[in-house]
Each structure stands twice: as structure tokens, then as C-alpha cells.
């Protein structure tokens, strides 16, 4: 899709979502914010996956973002929505840029395991720190908006609008990144690291960039989630939370920057109903779907859209759709 069309679509979608917000019932407003918050984290997971890297520890930054918001309110006395979210951004950026120096050397299974270990360290530290409520975590008061104290409902609505704008900006920037030389370099890296190295660019540079993007989007998502839920706890850094993000990334697919948003929406809606209908079978559904996607649908839900669009455009499915995704089809040997 040409640049201009994309920009218009993004602006239109963001405005539409904001407008719809005025008629949404409270629970749906809440659900939508959670979807946007989680999708932001998943965007980062997908960006890493496009470089052939799977992080089993994005919960780390999700949690860092949330605690940045929580601690900012608790100890620094910051109450403003924008101030708190800025804090989450900075926390993600700083921690990501430091740990990225370490992580950029790792690949494949070692990256997965190392990222998992780092998030479990944070989980361990937070669960034992009494000052921060140990395993229970602590509650967060609703933020003020541009200095004004609002009722809970209005505050939620303000967070909703902010979440829509933030998502729009992230998608726009993300799309520019994926189309840039650095973005393509990520795909190139997944395809063939040797060649990238022999073109004169350090693979570490490419991975570092991806890692930084992923840590920032994850901490923004975490901050947003903290403000919505009004409560945070160490379980945000637990590895099964990171597993959920990977699951959603695979569900949505990684071929388009907006795919994580579709994936998260589908995921959250199914969960909302599945937990009511079959609370003890939810994880069975997840597991089966995960394996099903990996075997039959390596490009995720988004591939349904793109192949449909291709069919509409060409009249037949002649050209092979070459949607980049994490290396699902290739064997190792």
C-alpha cells in the first residue's frame, strides 16, 4: 500500500476508534485499552520475530513500564497521565539500552532463555521486596489529565483516547521502521546472518535496534496497563506472561505492523468468553491453537487478510504471497 494511503488509513482508524469511544460501555472501554496496551508489547515481540529472534522475556519491560508508572506516582508524586507515561518510556529506553548491550550477542534458543532469565530476576526481586507489596503488588490511583482531576469514568475515557493516539503513533513509526533499510536489515538477518556481516554491518547493531524498539513498546504497554487496571504486581514479569505475548504475536502474525493489534483483539475476546464458558479448558484451547498455527498457519491471522486482498486484486491466487514471518516454515538442517 502506498505511503500516502497508509498514512490516511492510520489517521482514519485512530480517529474512528476515538469517536467510537464516546458510545462504548465502560467494560468495553476497559477491554479496548487492555487490548491496545498488550498489543503495544506484542508489536515489539513481532519486531524481534521478524529478525528471527524470539524473546521469552518481554514481561520484563511490560513490568518495568508498569512499575515506573506505579513508583512515579508513589514516590515521585507524579500524577499526570502524560508525565507517568513519559516515565514508562524513559524506564524502558534506559533499561533496554543497557540490557540490549548484553542481549545483542545472543541468538535463537539462547536469546529466548536469557531473556526469560532476566525477566525472572525482576520477578524474583519484586516478589521479595516488601516496600513494593511483595507478591501482592500495589494499587495505583487514577491519573490527573493535564493537571485536572477527573472522575474515574472520565479518567478512563482520557486514558482510552491517549491509548488510541499512542497506538496510532507506534503503528506509524513502526511502519516507517519496517520499510527502512534498518527494518529490512532485520529480515535479512533472519534469512542470512553471514551475508549481512559480509555487507559490512554488524548483526549486533540490527538486533540492538530491534531490542530497543521492543523494550520501549513493551514498557509503554505496561505503563498503560498499570493505569487502566489500577493495580500492578510482579506477575507481570513472570515468564508465562511473556509466553502469552509470544502466543499473540504468532496468532496475529508478523507480516504487518498492525497485525499484533488484530491478534490481541481476537485473543482477548476469545479469552473473555472462554473463561466464562470453560474456565478449566482455556489453556487447552490456547495450546491447541498455538500448535495449529505453527503447523498450518505460520503467518498468523493477518495472512488471511493479505491473501484475500491479493485475490481480490488479481482475480486469482497466482502470485505466491511472500509474507515475511518468523522462520516457521524452514527446518534447521
Amino acid at each position: 500500500m502506498p505511503e500516502k494511503n497508509f498514512n490516511i488509513t492510520i489517521i482514519a482508524a485512530t480517529l474512528l476508534l476515538i469517536t467510537v469511544g464516546f458510545i462504548l460501555p465502560g467494560w468495553l472501554t476497559f477491554l479496548t485499552i487492555s487490548i491496545l496496551a498488550k498489543a503495544l508489547v506484542v508489536v515489539g515481540v513481532a519486531v524481534l520475530m521478524r529478525g528471527g529472534i524470539v524473546s521469552f522475556g518481554q514481561g520484563l519491560y511490560y513490568c518495568i513500564g508498569a512499575y515506573a508508572v506505579g513508583l512515579g506516582g508513589k514516590f515521585l508524586g507524579i500524577t499526570d497521565l502524560l508525565g507517568l507515561m513519559f516515565l514508562a518510556l524513559v524506564a524502558g529506553l534506559v533499561s533496554g539500552s543497557l540490557l540490549g548491550l548484553l542481549m545483542k550477542r545472543y541468538r535463537e534458543i539462547f536469546f529466548a532463555m536469557f531473556s526469560l532469565a532476566l525477566s525472572m530476576i525482576l520477578f524474583g526481586v519484586l516478589s521479595k521486596s516488601q516496600l513494593l507489596g511483595s507478591t501482592d503488588g500495589f494499587t495505583i490511583v487514577k491519573p490527573t489529565i493535564l493537571g485536572a482531576t477527573l472522575s474515574t469514568d472520565n479518567a478512563n475515557h482520557a486514558i482510552y483516547i491517549f491509548a488510541c493516539l499512542l497506538s496510532g503513533i507506534v503503528i506509524w513509526l513502526g511502519q516507517r521502521y519496517l520499510r527502512s533499510p534498518m527494518g529490512f536489515a532485520g529480515e535479512a538477518l533472519r534469512d542470512n546472518e553471514v551475508r549481512v556481516e559480509y555487507l559490512g554491518v554488524a548483526p549486533e547493531t540490527i538486533i540492538y535496534t530491534k531490542y530497543l524498539i521492543a523494550s520501549v513498546t513493551a514498557s509503554l504497554g505496561g505503563g498503560l496497563m498499570a493505569l487502566t487496571l489500577g493495580h500492578i504486581g510482579p506477575e507481570m514479569a513472570y515468564w508465562s506472561q511473556s509466553g502469552e505475548f509470544i502466543f499473540i504475536a504468532l496468532l496475529g502474525g508478523t507480516s504487518h505492523i498492525a497485525a499484533p493489534f488484530v491478534g490481541t483483539a481476537v485473543f482477548e475476546f476469545i479469552r473473555t468468553f472462554a473463561l466464562e464458558l470453560a474456565p478449566n479448558a482455556w489453556q487447552i484451547i490456547l495450546g491447541v491453537v498455538l500448535i495449529f498455527i505453527i503447523i498450518f498457519f505460520p503467518s498468523g491471522i493477518w495472512s488471511l487478510f493479505s491473501s484475500l486482498k491479493e485475490k481480490l486484486r488479481s482475480g486469482e491466487s497466482g502470485s505466491p504471497s511472500k509474507t515475511p514471518s518468523v522462520d516457521l516454515k524452514k527446518g534447521d538442517s
Partner: peptide
């Protein structure tokens, strides 16, 4: 791929 197998066994 090894990472894929991690995800499958996660399922």
C-alpha cells in the same frame, strides 16, 4: 527450527 520446537512444546 529449535525455537519453533520450544513454542510447540509450550503449547
Amino acid at each position: 527450527d529449535e525455537v519453533i520446537m520450544v513454542l510447540v512444546t509450550y503449547g
